[in-house]
Write a protein that binds this DNA or RNA. Structure first.
Lengths: 156, 156
DNA sequence: ATTAATAGTTCATGTGTTGAATAATTAAAG
DNA sequence: CTTTAATTATTCAACACATGAACTATTAAT
């Protein structure tokens, strides 16, 4: 690949990913009701999928400090969507689970988001979307790898 | 495509795009110095690329209300990175331009981000990344289209 | 038994966002 | 031409999210 086109490719990626991020968030927000924010929905999503998790785990996945998670969880807890249960064998850890109200709310919202994503995906041919998803997943893994490298460099 | 696999595909997309977003932002932040935030860098980026723009234009591109832009611009202005110039033929509009300090800061930061993106892109074969970018751009356009549809529905 | 490390919270501070109200200016309608 | 719309940008109060430092409680290591 020539010097010229690689620079253009990078520029193009930075541009497109920015718009896809912004626009994607905006579209998801339009489907999430006024009961929840974008981050709150994704918090419910992670707990829903894993059944039960801890603040530390969420901080890891969301890539933020634990105090940020405490704030989000407290807001969800105030809305009656989250239960905090201490582990009896290690009383430092607190397990986070969803209330029935939260499960119902999540399922409802998630269904709307799924329909939105489906309407986007349906614009593609099956082969193209499968190829795209494979590359997208590769990119995700390269990013996670790159993040780890940076973090291990910082601590040495 | 079967009923089963389309559901899985949607789920997979929601999952991967969330991580790519978060991780991508985190990687960019690691390259943006402590002088700027992520959004501030992208604000400089847009003004740099366009030479000069207005708050309304930024609000459109960033998909936020104009008051959000005013806040960001004011912070950049306080750092001596932005100039506000009134249009003499239509005194309602204010043109935003970068100071020399901002241009230098942007170029420096952008170069680091470009290197980061390059290191990610280099993991791919040329054919694959080109195919990926084409699909990614299509997705971007479908999203923009979808957003417009939602907005015109709201105003009718 | 003393010292580390870990899990989680609290608090002060800063950034980004909305929505409503306002000011200033221009465009449209009568 | 004058009143009324619409447009551009700003201010302000209120909230969500993020960090970093300090702290509590608990467990692990020496």
């Amino acid at each position: 690949m020539g010097e010229h086109s690689i620079k253009d490719l990078i520029d193009r990626y930075i541009e497109i990913s920015f718009i896809v991020n912004r626009c994607g968030q905006s579209l998801v927000k339009s489907q999430v009701g006024s009961d929840l924010t974008y981050d709150q929905h994704y918090t419910l999503r992670h707990i829903y999928k894993s059944g039960s998790c801890t603040s530390s785990e969420l901080a890891e996945v969301f890539d933020v400090k634990k105090s940020a998670i405490t704030a989000i969880i407290t807001r969800l807890w105030e809305k009656g969507l989250i239960l905090r249960t201490r582990d009896e064998s290690d009383r430092r850890v607190v397990y986070l689970t969803l209330t029935d109200k939260a499960k119902a709310l999540f399922e409802d919202t998630e269904e709307r988001i799924q329909k939105l994503v489906e309407s986007l995906i349906n614009n593609f041919e099956e082969d193209e979307i499968n190829q795209f998803m494979d590359s997208f997943e590769k990119l995700k893994n390269f990013m996670l790898q790159s993040k780890e490298n940076i973090q291990t460099e910082e601590t040495k």
